[in-house]
Computed example of a mutant assay.
Amino acid sequence: MQLALGPTRYAYTDITAITSHFRDKLGQGGYGTVYKGVLPGDVHVAIKMLISSMSDGEEFISEVSSIGSIHHVNVVRLVGFCSEEMRRALVYEYMPNGSLEKYIFSSDKSFSWDKLNEIAVGIARGINYLHRGCDMQILHFDIKPHNILLDSDFTPKIADFGLAKLYPRDNSFLPVSAARGTVGYIAPEMISRSFGTISSKSDVYSFGMLLLEMAGGRRNVDPQASRSQTYYPAWVYNQLSRQEVGEISEARGIHEVEKKLCIVALWCIQMMSHDRPSMSEVLDMLEAGVNGLEIPPEPFFCGDEYAPDANSLHLPESTTFSE
């Protein structure tokens, strides 16, 4: 009955047993450390031990319940949780193929264009569901390859989608309305309101950067690249606008999926939030063919003269910005 109503509540001793005393560490991030665990029946899970100073217990349980009611094929499912004194944990379904990051930036683990397109559409469906398909609108604020996990069939699933909601609304942590994210994927309005208000369009921007990286197999900012290619989105736009599209992915000639992903991405990364499509419009573009797509207006900062200097790009991988 409890399984039907929502995520299961576990005692901390259960979490210890499930993880075999936290033996198998899967990764670590700003929110906490993730361990592999096994539930009865040989069900594999990923358990995220959250940092200790999270919100009060009642608020945490209330929000976990709401997040636990979310079920979508492209969103990682919350199986259970632990809230015991200052100990907080989230129990997610385990994704055996890890994150998208290790596939799109690796030459020996590359996907076919059809599979990349399928993954892009799946991610878009998941984000659109978080924006429009739930009782509450959930803004992710940290869409990037690392937070897209792949199941045994390489179906993409969005992870860490509910963590912003679990932070207390006081001065020591960022409220949902405040900006957070990872350098290279943060929408301009996250840093300055002159680019628009923080909204679902902020996730659209991050998704656009993710699409560019999927299409090109390289990070959107690469200090090691030649001067004209350091800021990848500007280089892609210049190539598309000049119809010199043969080198967008250096390993292969241009493919129609590659061109489509790039065009949709450039719409998504328009500097002003009101110039970007909604996630449902992005999904429509991805599900259509490339022939009906127009190249968007030039995103601000495109063009070689606006490309950031590689020497100025040595920023920490993750950062947060307050209001």
Rank of each mutant, 00 (worst) to 15 (best):
Y10R: 03
T13A: 14
G27R: 07
G27E: 09
Q28F: 00
G30E: 03
G30F: 02
V34N: 05
K36D: 05
P40S: 12
K48W: 01
S52W: 11
M54W: 10
S55K: 13
S55C: 14
E59S: 14
E59V: 12
F60H: 06
I61S: 03
V64R: 07
S66I: 13
H71M: 07
H71T: 12
V75C: 07
V75W: 05
L78Q: 12
G80E: 07
F81E: 11
E84K: 10
E85S: 15
L90V: 04
Y92G: 10
M95Q: 12
P96L: 01
P96M: 04
S99Y: 03
L100R: 06
L100T: 04
K102V: 13
K102W: 05
I104M: 12
F105Y: 14
D108L: 05
S110R: 15
S112K: 08
S112I: 06
K115R: 14
N117F: 04
N117G: 15
E118I: 00
G122R: 02
G122S: 03
G122Y: 04
I127A: 01
I127R: 06
N128L: 10
N128D: 15
L130D: 06
H131R: 11
H131Y: 00
G133C: 09
H140E: 05
I143N: 01
K144Y: 09
L149W: 07
L149R: 09
D151S: 02
F154R: 04
I158G: 01
F161V: 05
L163T: 11
L163E: 07
Y167D: 11
D170N: 15
S172I: 09
F173A: 13
G181C: 05
T182Y: 01
G184V: 09
G184T: 07
I186A: 02
P188D: 07
P188T: 02
E189S: 01
M190C: 15
S194C: 14
G196T: 07
I198M: 10
S200M: 10
S200I: 04
K201S: 14
V204P: 12
G208Y: 04
G208K: 01
L210K: 02
L211D: 05
A215G: 08
G216Q: 05
R218A: 08
D222S: 10
P223V: 02
P223N: 08
A225H: 06
R227K: 15
Q229M: 11
Y232I: 14
Y237R: 06
Q239P: 08
Q239V: 00
R242S: 15
Q243W: 06
I248L: 13
S249G: 09
R252I: 13
G253V: 08
H255W: 02
E258D: 13
K259F: 07
C262Y: 01
V264Q: 02
A265R: 03
M272Q: 15
M272H: 14
H274W: 09
D275I: 00
V282M: 02
M285H: 10
L286C: 04
E287M: 13
G289A: 04
G289F: 04
V290Y: 08
G292A: 10
E294D: 12
I295V: 14
P296C: 05
P297D: 12
F301A: 14
G303Y: 03
A307F: 08
A310P: 15
L313P: 08
H314Y: 12
L315A: 12
S318W: 06
S318L: 08
S318T: 13
T320G: 10
